[in-house]
């Protein structure tokens, strides 16, 4: 009887330990960015899906 009780307890412990715990994101370092440099204020962007750097170019 004790064995069955122990087995049931172990199963429930494993099930509990597998429940997902959501932790948020805890970064080790936080850096505030400065105001930044305005590179282009005339181009009208239309829902840019991504931006990548290719050598000396930015592709948007």
């Amino acid at each position: 009887m004790y064995k069955y009780f122990l087995l049931a307890w172990m199963i429930s412990s494993v099930a509990c330990s597998e429940r997902v715990v959501y932790t948020g994101i805890q970064p080790r370092h936080v850096q505030e960015l400065g105001e930044g440099e305005l590179l282009n204020s005339t181009h009208l962007f239309s829902n840019p899906t991504a931006m990548i750097i290719v050598d000396s170019l930015l592709v948007v």
Binding site: I25, P27, R28, H29, V30, Q31, E32, L33, G36
Partner: peptide, 10 residues
Amino acid sequence: GNAYKQYVFP
């Protein structure tokens, strides 16, 4: 998967 850093925009 370790969060190393966060950049905060102005």
